[in-house]
């Protein structure tokens, strides 16, 4: 089944491979992301998970929410653990000891596991070309340990280790352009996705599984606790991030950038692009920006988002 042919009707009938009853928070973006990703699987699948919210809240012994074989090893090594799984499967198949024609390997990591501590392992696994799909569920801070800043935390967000204080207005550094770094690894497939656009997300997951070699999907996973919004607005936050071009939807197959979904529509009709303020003002982590003395920081964020969006548009035309 090709990625293009996925239909919501078919997917709705498919049994959830991430079972209900796990202990992720109400409104947790990561839970929605993981469920959708698993919906899009196509056959025998093994999942490896980095330490983080998704891991701790879905596998509290003696319970587990996973209806697929699943392994957690450590925080920084999900890509290398997945490398071993993939290589093991390959060797077993060659020796005639594997009862499946093919087994898909999916690695889940949060932003801490991906931008920071596990970065090297991912880079190594991608350079070696393992046939794995790496899913980054990005809630933009170390939420599992209590909202500490990561390399994926956006500029001026207030976290517990980049608090908005009297002198410093939250995190001063830019969010690392992780997905573009992955494109630079010259792997066959990289994409961004949002739980607000489930079909686009699942289509990309399927494509990531179909390509031979490494695939990387960066999915924004709003966190009501860390971003400070009411749990009922998770999907709205995810949607606003795309509508404001803070988190555009795109994919790059063999390095060829292409906008998808709403982001494509915004590129055609720039009037659709919402100001970043609409996204920022809904979240407590940016509350300090809406004081008279910090107001210019919102303008700065708008400028950064515009620049990055324009750069992306150029990449889509060029490639």
């Amino acid at each position: 089944m090709s990625g293009e042919k996925l239909s919501l009707k078919d997917l709705a009938r498919k049994r959830d491979l991430l079972a209900p009853g796990h202990r992720l928070c109400a409104g947790c973006g990561a839970a929605i992301v993981a469920r959708l990703v698993m919906k899009a699987t196509r056959g025998p699948t093994i999942v490896a998970c980095a330490t983080g919210c998704l891991e701790v809240a879905t596998t509290i012994f003696p319970y587990t929410a996973w209806r697929v074989p699943w392994i957690h090893s450590a925080f920084e090594n999900v890509a290398s653990t997945a490398s071993g799984i993939e290589a093991g499967l390959k060797a077993l198949k060659r020796a005639g000891k594997l009862k499946y024609d093919h087994v898909d390997v999916i690695a889940f990591g949060g932003d801490g596991a991906t931008y920071d501590i596990g970065f090297q392992a991912i880079s190594g696994a991608f350079e070696r070309g393992h046939d794995i799909l790496y899913v980054l569920y990005d809630n933009e801070a170390y939420m599992n340990t209590g909202i500490q800043r990561s390399g994926g935390t956006p500029k001026y967000a207030s976290t517990t280790t980049s608090p908005a204080g009297k002198v410093i207005p939250g995190k001063l550094e830019l969010k690392k352009p992780i997905s573009h770094i992955m494109v630079a690894h010259r792997i066959p497939y990289v994409a961004t996705a949002s739980p607000a656009y489930p079909l686009d997300l699942m289509r990309k997951v399927r494509r990531g599984l179909e390509v031979e070699g490494p695939a990387f999907i960066h999915i924004l996973a709003p966190c009501p606790r860390g971003w400070r919004f009411d749990p009922r607005y998770t999907i709205e936050m995810a949607r606003l991030a795309v509508q404001t071009c803070v988190f555009p939807l795109w994919e790059a197959e063999n390095g060829k950038y292409k906008l998808t979904g709403v982001s494509r529509s915004i590129a055609r009709n720039p009037k659709m692009k919402k100001p970043v303020e609409e996204y920022l003002k809904r979240q407590g982590r940016f509350r300090h920006l809406f004081t008279p003395e910090n107001r210019h920081l919102v303008d700065e964020i708008q400028k950064i988002v515009d620049e990055e969006w324009n750069w992306l548009l150029k990449m889509c035309q060029l490639s």
Partner: peptide, 24 residues
């Protein structure tokens, strides 16, 4: 044998963990 030229010893053991867990 599938030889994985990993980028660190941490990944060497991690890959062994993944491989052994899948039955290799």
């Amino acid at each position: 044998t599938e030889y994985i030229a990993v980028e660190s010893e941490h990944s060497a053991m991690s890959a062994c963990i993944g491989a052994a867990a899948v039955g290799a």
